[in-house]
Each structure stands twice: as structure tokens, then as C-alpha cells.
Design a protein around this nucleic acid. Structure first.
Lengths: 124, 124
DNA sequence: AATACTGTTATAGCTGAATAATACACTGAT
DNA sequence: ATCAGTGTATTATTCAGCTATAACAGTATT
């Protein structure tokens, strides 16, 4: 996997796993790949994977069965809440960043629409 | 100034200056604060400021008169292009991130609208 | 010439992120 | 009991980012 420079890899791994969960590719109770498999898949050190998983463990999104593996929580309420937070945070940051670039809230919708129009034209 | 952890400070300084330019608070040809003043303002080391400015220099957004200071380029075409890029990059990332969270392009507009509605209600 | 601004460069030291390598500990199947 | 697959922990090493401090170099004003 390719990682951005300038952002710690373990955070990007977290983000990657969160997205898998948000997309439903990893579901409640499901086992995730072992730390060693992930390390190989992501071409990253085991310790780095471990660090990401520990955090998600602390956050309650994953739980660990020693000797067996890591599993997505079965707390579906927490999962739903987490998914919503991911999206809200994205929206938050977007609005804030655009505001800081001088784009006003009331124009955001139109700017976004125009952008999507443009990007669709490129693909045609 | 407060900086996010996990993103190099010199990049955040760049971002800060780019925003000042995008907002028109720093205009073509205008002198920007000296490295030492910036260092104090931003509570950061001179070398860190220097690093940010060097990059912007390389990118042509600033030019340096040794002994006098740093100035915003007078190439207004470049400035306009830069402003547009900042916004486009923001849009790019937003669409990409939301897609990775399972929100489809065709729903983005509505999701954004709803979010803005929600945030406006909070302020009332 | 002196002073007070500018930008520039260099050194040494600290911290966090990441790696490699190794070992330990637990679980489940053979 | 053994083995293969899990998570966990330790150590040593490298590197990037940042700081503090100091020195050097150019410009403008006095």
C-alpha cells in the first residue's frame, strides 16, 4: 500500500481500517487479518500495525483474543456512531478548510456541484 | 499559533500563508513579516519558518530580497492559479474521502446541505 | 562607520516514527 | 506434546522534524 508522506503510517492504517468498516467490508464481529498478514499486505513493520490496532482497541472498535486475532466489535451502536463520526469529521474539516480559503458556506453547495460537473466532463 | 500534531509544522505554516494569500490578506507584491517576527508570532523556531518560506520560494509564490524580506509574487496569473488549485485540491480530497466512506457522488450535495442545516441549528 | 533591520547557514541535541530482529505467550488443531 | 498461527514486548538503529544558539551576509538609515 502507498502511504502519504507527512502523516504517520500507523494513523493511515487506522484510517484504512476505519474505512473498511464504514464501507461494510469489515462487519461487526468479523475477524480482521492477523498483524503479520497486515504487515506484509501493507509492506510495513509488525510494530507499526500493532500500534494502529492498539489504538483502535483502546477506542473500542476492535477487541483482541490473544492467540486468535483481532475482531471488529459487536457493539453495533458504537459502530454506527463511529461511521457517522467519520463522515461528520470529514464534513467538518471540509467546511472549515473551504471557509479558510474564502469560500462562504452559502456558496459551498454550488462550488461542489460545479466541481463534480467538471470532473464528470473529464471522464467523458 | 496552535499546530496539529501529526503534521509537520513547516507544512502548516505554508498552509497558513497560502490561506492568507487566498483570502487576500496578503496581496501581490506585498511584504510578508520577517522570518524572526513570524517565528515569534507562531512560537516556532526560525529554521522552521525558513523551511516553509524556502518551499514557497521554490514554488514561485514568494520571492526573497536578501536583507529586505520576503514578498508575495507579482505574478497575478500564478496567484490566481494557485488559489484555484487550493480550492480544487480541497474539493478533490473531500470527494475522495467521502467516497472512501461509502458516500456516493450523487448524494454528496444533499449530505453537505443537511450537515450545514444541522450546524446552523446548533448556533441558534 | 555604526546600528538595526533583513535573510541564511551551521551545529548539537531531543523526540517521535519506523524498521529489523528476536523472543515470549496464548490458542487450536494434529 | 508438538506445531502453526495468533498477539505482545524488547532492543537497537535510522531518520525526519524541531529547537536553541550562534554566526554570517546583505540592506537601509542614521
Amino acid at each position: 500500500m502507498e502511504f502519504k508522506d507527512n502523516i504517520p503510517i500507523y494513523l493511515q492504517i487506522e484510517q484504512y481500517l476505519y474505512r473498511q468498516i464504514a464501507m461494510g467490508k469489515l462487519q461487526a464481529g468479523q475477524k480482521i487479518p492477523s498483524v503479520r498478514k497486515l504487515a506484509v499486505e501493507l509492506t510495513v513493520n509488525v510494530n507499526t500495525v500493532q500500534r494502529a490496532l492498539q489504538q483502535m482497541n483502546d477506542q473500542g472498535i476492535l477487541y483482541t483474543k490473544r492467540g486468535e486475532g483481532n475482531f471488529v466489535t459487536e457493539d453495533t451502536a458504537l459502530l454506527d456512531k463511529t461511521k457517522q463520526s467519520l463522515i461528520d469529521n470529514e464534513l467538518d474539516e471540509f467546511v472549515q478548510n473551504m471557509t479558510r480559503l474564502g469560500v462562504k458556506k452559502e456558496n459551498l453547495g454550488q462550488v461542489l456541484e460545479e466541481y463534480i460537473q467538471r470532473s464528470e466532463n473529464k471522464n467523458e
